[in-house]
Amino acid sequence: MSRRFVEPSILPGFSLTFGFTVFYLSLIVLIPLSMLFFKTASLSPREFWEILTATRTLAAYRLSFGTAFASAGINAVFGVIIAWALVRYSFPGKRIIDALVDFPLALPTAVAGIALTELYAPNGSVGRYLALAGIKGAFTPLGITIALTFVGLPFVVRTVEPVLEELDPQLEEAAASLGASRWYTIKKVIFPVIAPAVLTGFTLAFARAVGEYGSVIFIAGNMPMKTEIAPLLIMTKLEQYDYAGATTIAIGMLLISFFFLAAANFFQWQLSRKYGKV
């Protein structure tokens, strides 16, 4: 017996919605992406490889992915804490805090970048005290991480919130009645349940941070080899009309991002398999 492409469903509308999905994704995602590869194809494999492995490119990749990873990690920890406070307790000003979480999404990133630079520059109101402690805020990888943490904040909070809301408080009561300490309960009962959501939030924050441009260029200082992020390097190449060079670096970023997302998805799949979906 031959297997069908899809099992026929009793609910109508499959061909319409599926057709639209394919058309829409092609128009919005696939065609622009294919242009990327098309443009790069004007280079010889040797030229392509040279641009991709130039020390300046590698340094930019390292900086971009390193700071994105660090900021997503910071957001994963503090995002869970914020989500916990918002879900579990009611307190005055809760709605204001709730709105503040979405703020980084609404604010033009360049505005955020300028504000953060003002704050963390050596003569800024925070940077001044950091400088006393011998820490440079703006114009270092630390500054970039701060900016990326800012733009990535909503993702972990918003993905973990619904899962925490669904988490039955009786599970914690059951654990307590069995003599478990609070810490043991968090470790063994709460964390395993929210872990997949935290990972999803982490991935989203990471993806957002890798592609971030506006808020970073002000605070980064943009010194080649030191504080030059990959998206900026692409912009630099574009300004020099080196389209093929720009798309090459973009393809590099795309492949690395794809690898990370695939790894995260695999990890997620393993988590949900281990904890047996109900």
């Binding site: 009786q170 599970l171 009561e173 059951a174 009645s177 069995l178 003599g179 478990a180």
Partner: peptide, 16 residues
């Protein structure tokens, strides 16, 4: 956690 009671919930509250 100190009382030494066994508590059973209506909706089981098992760790899934």
């Amino acid at each position: 956690s100190e009382r030494g009671v066994g508590f059973v919930f209506q909706h089981y509250a098992l760790f899934r």
